[in-house]
Design a protein around this nucleic acid. Sequence first.
DNA 1: GTCAAACAAATTGTTAACAATTTAGATATA
DNA 2: TATATCTAAATTGTTAACAATTTGTTTGAC
Lengths: 201, 201
Amino acid sequence: MKSFPQRQAYRESISNVIRRDLMSGKFKCDEPMREQKLAARFGTSRGPVRDALMQLTQEGVLEYQPNKGVRVSSLLTDEERDVVVAMRLELEKYCIQKFIPIATKEDFKNISVLLERLKNACEVASLPEVAESDLALHRYWVAQASPHLESTWLGLSVRMIMKYSRLENYDQAIEEHSRIVEALLGRNIDKAIYYLGENIL
Amino acid sequence: MKSFPQRQAYRESISNVIRRDLMSGKFKCDEPMREQKLAARFGTSRGPVRDALMQLTQEGVLEYQPNKGVRVSSLLTDEERDVVVAMRLELEKYCIQKFIPIATKEDFKNISVLLERLKNACEVASLPEVAESDLALHRYWVAQASPHLESTWLGLSVRMIMKYSRLENYDQAIEEHSRIVEALLGRNIDKAIYYLGENIL
DNA sequence: GTCAAACAAATTGTTAACAATTTAGATATA
DNA sequence: TATATCTAAATTGTTAACAATTTGTTTGAC
């Protein structure tokens, strides 16, 4: 939740917007991302756009070819997705277990807010919003527990969601996350990890 | 092992050099990376340098702060390293298992060459060379089995090596990798995975 | 009509200049 | 001396122009 100066550091906000578009399937697979058009869309020059595209390339959601630019990365195979899921789960379990003992009242408040945001998005049934608030919730404890591994986690999570989003079953999403957060607020590590395992697959 | 046009696409080669420097401990922890100096060193303008720095930031070996540039990322905690090791192992096991059935004679030849390179580096006892050829060897089967996950793998591996490099025991490194490659050439998946598990920790 | 070569347009790669921000140092004041 | 404020230097952020590459189209020979 960092805030940036108004007229600078576009790269973060640009990559966030593009990432959301990608997660909600706004771009077709293998579709080339043109720097000029994106620059016009975001009202900047090509520089910051290139930064954002490179960042997303490193996350794995875009593919780069020298002198040909970047295009939407082809989706993971089912097997690859399984591996990614396992890695993300490994990482996020560690974060949960690390986070619960050190979590403050403030943290619990923030998490409750994020859960509310997710619920609202589910009720409106807006896929981009659901995907984003889902990630934001998980991201919170990852960032708190291990800022070093936050970007690693993000890359895995986004690609996992892009493959096939289980997010379409909104009621289930609310259920699952409510259970996780409940266990979290009760500082019950085992329970939280258990429900996390049910949610991430 | 892609080759790039002579006067373009500096970003890859620059980030490769900086990554090697980082792995061999050439920069102190928290030391700021100045764009100007790097540009001078590589004989380019700041643009490609910024690209390389951002790429390494996304890999997790550098840390970025808006308007303050990037600095060498503080090392992982022991616990975090354990998680990274587990994730890398999960990923690389999958790649080995996927790679062995589809490997060609050509692949075997390339792997043998890479193993030789590693052996030579070990004999010369040059840490940067050892680290690089170690990574190059592993990277080969990762790239062949799952190019989609190559950059994910690279980020994990580099950070794992940076934390504390077991590479100082050169004889052991030769032993371990010889066993892995031997199992690989014999298309023995179980054996290869077993020795891999002994190597990656 | 088909294929190949030459040309033109679109796109990416790089650079240098400028703007904004941060950092360090000098100066003044209590 | 210690502290605060102002100034200058260093550094990062952004932009537009130019270079190099790729891509699409036209032209011409057969």
